[in-house]
Write a protein that binds this DNA or RNA. Structure first.
Lengths: 147, 147
DNA sequence: CTACTATATAGGAGTTAATCTTAATTGTCA
DNA sequence: TGACAATTAAGATTAACTCCTATATAGTAG
């Protein structure tokens, strides 16, 4: 079935914008619609290319800014690990990470039960899995105290 | 106890370099040592700053290039913070990701058992956990076939 | 120990993605 | 409808690499 923006998702969008005192502009509607029908987790530039077919004059900055705004009010998500400088870890033994969403600290921890966590059958069948990581996110002790 | 680069880790480093036909340069030794004693998953720029105290003339490009090389031969790891453009996900319901390490595709999947995965006690006690995600990595169907 | 060669490095130029600035425009609400 | 605060486009700026090239150096073969 072809994608269709339901009244439901549009009113969810409008509702959320209003609640956050964001104006409903044509740019925002189109950006939201376009991301909503994307399954490839696009970056701003890719989305901008698609959106220009609908609003030719739209600037890349607007797409960027709008996506950040959407992420802030929680109607879209930022895919973990992207949009940040590359970071390196000297620890090559199997381990997992806790990441503070405030100060961006990454803390290593080991926990055997996570190492061989069961992979769902359909994923196991379709893809060749080399690595399983658990990422816990929240506030670290320092940032948690401040709040 | 203060950090010390053991003979063991140095010979592991030398061994790995030789096996991969990499020259053992003073720059590489210092970069490896410096990353090895870092617990903050630094990015190249941060590491460059620390290393300049030891080799004042070292260029940022060398640090960058060397870290990538180290990651390629597997003596260090690239962690969240992949140095790639920010990507967005319209799916706000709880879900997890498979990521192809070849073509960088990200594929969503849902799997209830991951959603409330048990958090180790010491992590639970020290940090305020808001979110638990499992990241599976490997080759997608397309990239798997090519190999 | 010396000479050779393939690598690696420094430094600067070039890119790409993201962010900021400013002036013009446009939703929103009285 | 009008006023105003929010939003936009366009271009400048910044950040984080990445590429280029001339010089230097580690490994190794004699």
């Amino acid at each position: 079935m072809p994608f269709q923006l339901t009244d439901e998702s549009l009113s969810f969008f409008i509702e959320k914008c209003k609640r956050n005192k964001l104006k409903i502009t044509p740019q925002r509607i189109v950006i939201y619609k376009e991301l909503l029908k994307s399954t490839d987790h696009p970056h701003a530039e890719a989305l901008h290319k698609r959106i220009k077919k609908i609003i030719p004059g739209i600037s890349l900055d607007t797409v960027n800014r709008t996506l950040l705004t959407f992420a802030k009010i929680g109607i879209v998500k930022n895919v973990e690990g992207y949009g940040e400088p590359r970071r390196y870890d000297p620890k090559i033994e199997k381990h997992h990470h806790f990441r503070c969403i405030e100060c961006n600290a990454i803390i290593d921890f080991e926990y055997k039960p996570y190492d061989d966590i069961i992979v769902p059958g359909d994923i196991q069948n379709r893809y060749f899995i080399l690595n399983r990581k658990v990422l816990l996110e929240g506030y670290c002790d320092k940032c948690g105290k401040k709040r």
